[in-house]
Amino acid sequence: MEYVPGIPILKPSLDADNRPFWEAVRRHEFVLQKCGSCDRYFQPPRPMCPECRSMDTMEWVPSAGRGQVYSFVNFTTDRMAYPAMKIPYSVVLVELEEGVRMISNMLDLEPDDVQIGMPVEVAFDDLDEDLTLFKFKKLEG
């Protein structure tokens, strides 16, 4: 996927719950939110574990960022697409090994080659001085 020069990329909106995630991405680290008591992962992050309702057991733990494509869409015309990205582009929903699913883009892969079940691994894309996004690469083999 490629960006169209000169059009700003929408940045994530930060709040107290998701800030640690995006700060980690900035450092090229991939972390997920987990309840230390229930041993369960949650996405999007939240202030309370919905299982045990504890507010002080939610922690950020490193993840290998590996998983598989759970679903995807391909933007094939500019009618509903994001002007900052060149058509065609894919948006993938990746199911990580930890069980949570996250929206992202594939690096170095044409939309026609994306498939459900494809193994992927996280990669980082420094877009400008303020913005790093996490993307996914196809895992061979």
Binding site: K11, S13, A81, Y89, V91, I103, S104
Partner: peptide
């Protein structure tokens, strides 16, 4: 607010 996880990816 969760859209912040989606918009940067052209979604």
């Amino acid at each position: 607010l969760h859209y912040g996880y989606y918009f940067p990816f052209g979604f």
